[in-house]
Amino acid sequence: MGATEVDVLKGVDLKIESGEFVSIMGPSGSGKSTLMNLIGCLDRPTGGSYVLSGTRVDEMDEEALAKVRNRNIGFVFQTFNLLPRESATENVELPLLYSGVREPRALAVEALKEVGLGHRLDHRPNELSGGERQRVAIARAIVLRPPIILGDEPTGNLDSRTGAEIMAILKDLNAKGTTLVIVTHDQAIAAHSERVITIKDGVITSRVD
């Protein structure tokens, strides 16, 4: 769609094991979000290959990609990306609707309780605080129990205390076996992870294992 073509990522060679907790850091504009969108199957690489649980994602058709986004990956965005007109529960029901679950409400309520929002089920996003909105987004990401959770600066719009609470929830998920990849500018948050990848101008410059 863009008028000019920009090569954002160049020669990324990255392998993430199942159950890992990886942070991605780097200066603004370095290509972190672009990398996360590729991992999350929202974007397609113009070249190279991406293998997810043994399957070539870059060769999948749209339908298969939608299914991967639905079942295998839970995405948490910096800007929450909730539907403004729908209640917390309805937002969390969304992935369930697209996977054909007949009675989505019970599962959605369960996920909301898990992130500590059992008392805000019928509130709309604009009736919730930033931290609460991000909890709704996490509930939506985990409601189908995907093996991978991706967070693109999930605490970027939150104060440090709320950010720490959100990180605690994510770490807990990782402890239960979910693969966790997050982008962050915050050293303190990156410190929680097992591995930090630094990216600069679209090239991975360092790995701390």
Binding site: E62, A66, R69, R71, N81, L94, Y98
Partner: peptide, 10 residues
């Protein structure tokens, strides 16, 4: 975009 991100097909 949000719907597609959580698994809506075309």
């Amino acid at each position: 975009g949000i719907r597609m991100a959580v698994g809506a097909r075309r």
